[in-house]
């Protein structure tokens, strides 16, 4: 295998996180369990896509247009964490993925907002995403036996992808250990209220295969990119 791509600009991982999770949420369109969630999941997807576009705009001098960044990079050049690329699974899986991610992204954006090319709006958006995921985690954890089982299974499956979230990203001034501590406290609190068990793992985070920040991804990611990029790549140079 080739080695990971060279170091990327510091904000690229944040943009890639937003783009890839937005794409996954977009896959829900027409499949949501209730009409209100069609609207809510699309809201979150649109917020994330807006964040990705704003972050990419800040990188255009280095990496080209937003579409070049999204559609013409190879898999190894993407710096999103592996959590965001995980397939949707059932609704519980999607909600737990969102909970894990938004509980990370919201304080991260809050810390970085003075230096990021994102409006304060993005911090408010992520607060909504987090609240939405928390509320559903409570409902599903506490609802029926089936919903509890599905939600616990989702947490157990996704836990291994959470350790990576707190790997320092070079060039971002963030209190990473503080972020991890805050995250674990919050997840612990939500899980306790939802009657869920926090999966086992080293205290600094789950055991993690995560190397998304270095450009190494999981198997489903190649398929995601194939679908996302194929039309754009099929018409080189075309404007849409």
């Amino acid at each position: 295998m080739t080695s990971p791509a060279p170091p990327a600009p510091a904000t690229l991982p944040l943009g890639d996180d937003a783009l890839i999770l937005s794409h996954r949420l977009g896959e829900w369109a027409g499949h949501a369990p209730v009409l209100e969630e069609e609207v809510a999941l699309a809201n979150i997807a649109l917020d994330l896509l807006g964040q990705a576009r704003a972050l990419y705009a800040g990188l255009s001098d280095l990496l080209g247009s937003e579409d070049e960044i999204a559609f013409l990079r190879e898999e190894r050049a993407f710096r999103n964490c592996q959590l965001t690329e995980q397939p949707n699974g059932d609704f519980a899986h999607t909600i737990v993925r969102q909970l894990f991610f938004s509980t990370y992204q919201q304080p991260l954006f809050a810390q970085l907002s003075p230096v990021l090319p994102l409006a304060a709006k993005a911090v408010r958006e992520t607060a909504y995403h987090r609240d939405h995921a928390e509320q559903w985690t409570l409902r599903l954890g506490d609802g029926t036996e089936e919903s509890h089982t599905r939600t616990q299974r989702a947490a157990d499956t996704l836990w291994r992808y959470t350790g990576e979230l707190f790997q320092p990203v070079e060039g971002l001034e963030v209190d990473w250990p503080g972020l991890a501590e805050e995250w674990h406290a919050s997840i612990g609190d939500v899980f306790a209220r939802a009657g869920l068990t926090v999966p086992a793992g080293p205290s600094e985070g789950a055991w993690s295969a995560g190397a998304g920040r270095q450009g190494l991804h999981t198997e489903p990611f190649g398929l995601l990119l194939a679908e996302m990029q194929h039309l754009h790549r099929s018409h080189p140079g075309a404007a849409w």
Partner: peptide, 18 residues
């Protein structure tokens, strides 16, 4: 939605379906 050829079109289409 998952194949929209530009980010702008992807946003428009997601908003429309929403």
């Amino acid at each position: 939605i998952t194949r929209a050829p530009s980010l702008r079109r992807k946003a428009i289409l997601m908003a429309k379906v929403q």
